[in-house]
Amino acid sequence: MIPLINYLVVSVTLFCIGMYMVLSKHNAIQILIGIELMLNAANLNLVAFGKYDSANNAGQIFTLFTIVMAAATTAVALAIILNVYKQYKTIDPDKIDKLGD
């Protein structure tokens, strides 16, 4: 049996990679990918901890929800990015700082 800690290490690694992508990439698509990675790291945790909730498999169910939600948000996010690109002719979040005003 694979001990829980191994899952968690993978999950943290994924999360950190995702986090790093979100913070440092200059392309909105890549940031989106980072977000997906972070979500999947969370999913992995849910599934891993779900073993200890043997009664109703709530972890797996949550994970399914999350995957669906992620697909939906990604679609929305891509749409936004598309519009941003239309508006600013760039998808580099550094260049788009209208939010600051």
């Binding site: 913070l23 979040p93 788009i96 700082d97």
Partner: peptide, 12 residues
Amino acid sequence: GGKVQYYLFSML
């Protein structure tokens, strides 16, 4: 600064 990434970084 309106830079989303910077916000996130600060939060972190």
